[in-house]
Amino acid sequence: MVSGEKGRLLRWWFFFLLLLSPLAALFVNLLNDNLGADPAKVIVKELGFWAITLLWLTLSVTPGIKLLGWRWLMSFRRMLGLYTFFYAVLHLLSFATFLVGWRWDILLTELTKRPYIVVGSLALLLLIPLTFTSTKAMQRRLGKRWKKLHFLIYPISLLAMLHFIWQIRSDFGQQLIFAILLAILLGYRLYLNRRS
């Protein structure tokens, strides 16, 4: 690890750009006509994939520190959380724009009647308070309540998983991998909780 202020800054930029790269790749592929005959669906799907991947990575920070001793991970937990929100918002916006064309009649029934969209929207909605209380100042101001509020990440992850499972047509390979990873991540919390 590079040490000192300069090293920290370098590392910060490295992770910032790394987590932005899926979006950049999507954009470049779109401009190069590389997303196939129906880019709309591919974009929505990819953004959703990165939102849930980043959520799982956010949940991996604590086990990473405790099991591997990677204390530096802690300084990137906030960035991972904010990127989760960022990709989740883009996911919803691209759905509403590219697939529904902001047809309010369709949007309204989709957001209220379709179980997987209801569940996904709820997960996104719950991410909002976490996003706006993510600063150090808010953390100080909320004190103990901050931690309680941010426990919301657990129900959010379950909602996101359900939202993902509801996309299954016939092959559930990808969903199975994410479910196993989530079981490990949440199981580890239960284990910690029981031990203390």
Partner: peptide, 20 residues
């Protein structure tokens, strides 16, 4: 059960004004 069949996206569909 998971989505509406009332409308369809006719391909090719443009990104910013989908062909619904």
């Amino acid at each position: 059960p998971r989505w509406s069949q009332a409308t369809e996206r006719r391909l090719p569909s443009s990104l910013l004004s989908p062909n619904i």
